[in-house]
């Protein structure tokens, strides 16, 4: 009987959970569905969930407007470029904080964290002016620099927490075995920390892909990644729901997929290790 009862509770919980998560997911689902509708169906007063003529014309339309690929490419370059550049800078720093600890290590980490808490508007004007003067406005290079810098503290922190889990003795063993510091990092530390490095990379690609302050302020037609491009739909164009949906779908689906892979790392990375 008890068994029966527990199945009933499980059923009830399952029902509630699916309902709530369905509601939370609905706006995304709706966007995906609408992207396959015609514009007329998209704004129909009696919208249909599945019973309509599925069409790919919106995707064709959005892609036919050639800039879409540009913006997509910009997003890729900016997010992946800044993540890789960030890794190159963050790995040595994290190595040194994790394996050559000094009294200052903790303060240094906290200070890095504090830069992340600087509200962007606090430096908005100087950055804008500096970018203007150095000709970096609306360039991918400019955005890669900014993204690298704003995500650097998170990268250092995440790598640091991963590196800390690697026993020092393994690295010392490498040193005893005749490895130089470079070889020690290349052949021992990096391979062992590879999963952690991969998730750091992943999380930062996601964060950079979705960043929507500096991308909106520092770019125009040329270097705008998808965040900024999609924002242009807030003008009357946005009334073409089906096309808006198609453009949105293409912007979010890649990162949704990446995101699902990085759930666990997300917690660790975004809470700076406060929750593991």
């Amino acid at each position: 009987m008890a068994n029966n009862n527990s199945i009933k509770t499980k059923l009830i919980y399952t029902f509630i959970a699916w309902t709530i998560s369905g509601l939370i997911f609905f706006p995304i689902l709706w966007t995906l569905i609408t992207s396959f509708k015609t514009e007329a169906e998209a704004i129909s007063a009696s919208p249909s969930l599945f019973m309509f003529d599925w069409t790919l014309e919106n995707y064709e339309d959005v892609l036919a407007r050639s800039p879409y690929f540009n913006h997509f490419w910009n997003s890729i370059v900016i997010s992946i470029g800044s993540s890789i550049l960030g890794l190159l800078i963050a790995i040595p720093a994290a190595w040194s904080m994790a394996f050559v600890q000094t009294k200052r290590t903790k303060n240094l980490l906290m200070w890095m964290l504090s830069t992340k808490m600087l509200p962007p508007v606090g430096v908005l004007i100087p950055i804008y002016l500096l970018f203007r003067d150095f000709g970096l406005l609306d360039t991918k290079v400019g955005l890669v620099i900014v993204m690298t810098l704003i995500n650097l503290p998170i990268m250092v922190w995440m790598l640091y927490t991963y590196f800390r889990e690697i026993p020092n003795e393994v690295l010392e063993a490498a040193r005893m075995d005749g490895a130089s510091i470079g070889e020690e990092i290349l052949y021992v530390l990096l391979p062992i920390a590879l999963p952690g490095i991969a998730s750091t990379l992943l999380l930062n690609v996601i964060l950079a892909w979705n960043e929507a302050f500096w991308t909106l302020i520092l770019t125009a037609a040329n270097a705008a990644p998808l965040t900024a491009f999609i924002a242009s739909y807030s003008s009357p164009e946005g009334l073409f729901y089906a096309k808006l949906s198609a453009a949105s779908a293409m912007a979010i689906v890649p990162i949704l997929i990446l995101g699902w892979f990085s759930q666990k790392q997300l917690v660790r990375g975004l809470s700076f290790g406060a929750v593991k």
């Binding site: 026993p167 003795e169 393994v170 010392e172 063993a173 490498a174 040193r175 005893m176 075995d177 005749g178 490895a179 130089s180 021992v188 391979p191 062992i192 590879l194």
Partner: peptide, 19 residues
């Protein structure tokens, strides 16, 4: 530096390269 001393060490935790 340790690499140049020509000594070998065996650690309590073995310190094998796990990968």
């Amino acid at each position: 530096p340790p690499a140049k001393r020509g000594l070998a060490m065996v650690f309590q935790s073995y310190a094998l390269y796990p990968h």
